[in-house]
Simulated assay, not measured.
Amino acid sequence: MVTLHIAYTEPVNGNDSDGLILTREDVWNGLKLKARRPEVFIPSFDNSRVIEERENGNVIIREAHVAADLHESPMAGKWVREECRLHEPIGIYFTLPGGSIVQNIISEGPNKSLFLTFTYDWNLPDIEPGTPEAKKAESDHMKIAVSSVQGTIRALRRMATEKSDCS
């Protein structure tokens, strides 16, 4: 079995010329929605359902459907049950079947700039360390990490734009 340890970070307010500046509250509110409706944010999910909420909504058990055309994932076309633990205001920790862990972290850098980091500890029981399959899995899962962070930031920015258009 191989466990992949992957992290990817992007600035929330990048060098966009649109002038829209997201706040920590904007990002946190988006991540709370992402725990309930991941398909709005993550290209690799195409459906979801909340099974249970506990501890005033700080623990969410959900099922998310991995898109069938996500060839990078061994879970393509399957439903995955996840436990989501919200830790306001910094992030959400997701526990997946088989003990894999995903974290969505909001952090602050110089000049109070915001960053969004997703970390992954993916357990892949059918892959042996050091094999070509392990190298390919690492590359494939990094692509998933990049698209997940970028998709989340795009969705957060789109939601903020729609919100300001309604004001």
Rank of each mutant, 00 (worst) to 15 (best):
T95F: 15
R37A: 03
G109K: 14
T119N: 14
I90F: 12
R24I: 00
N56F: 03
V66N: 10
I127C: 08
Y93A: 15
K143G: 15
V27N: 01
E88P: 11
L116P: 01
V50I: 13
N15I: 02
P74M: 06
N111H: 15
S148M: 03
A160T: 10
L4G: 06
E55A: 09
W122Q: 12
Y93M: 13
E72T: 05
V2C: 07
Q150L: 12
L33S: 07
P129T: 15
I106P: 07
L114M: 06
I61S: 02
G57C: 05
E25W: 01
C166H: 14
K32W: 00
A137L: 09
S100N: 08
A160S: 13
L31W: 01
Y93L: 13
L33D: 14
D16Q: 09
T119R: 14
N58D: 10
V12I: 14
E133D: 15
S107N: 08
P97C: 07
D140W: 11
P11W: 02
E128G: 02
E25S: 08
W28I: 01
E108Q: 14
T3V: 14
V50A: 04
H87M: 12
D140R: 01
S100Y: 07
K34E: 11
S107E: 03
K143E: 09
N111Y: 12
H65E: 09
R54Y: 04
T131N: 09
L116S: 03
Q103Y: 03
G19W: 13
T95M: 10
P89K: 09
T152A: 13
P43I: 02
R157G: 08
N104E: 09
F118Y: 11
Q150G: 06
E138W: 07
F41I: 00
E108Y: 03
N111F: 13
V12T: 07
T152H: 03
C84Y: 08
T161I: 15
R154P: 00
Q150V: 09
E128D: 13
V12D: 01
A160H: 12
S107D: 06
V146F: 02
E63M: 08
N13R: 05
I6T: 12
G19R: 13
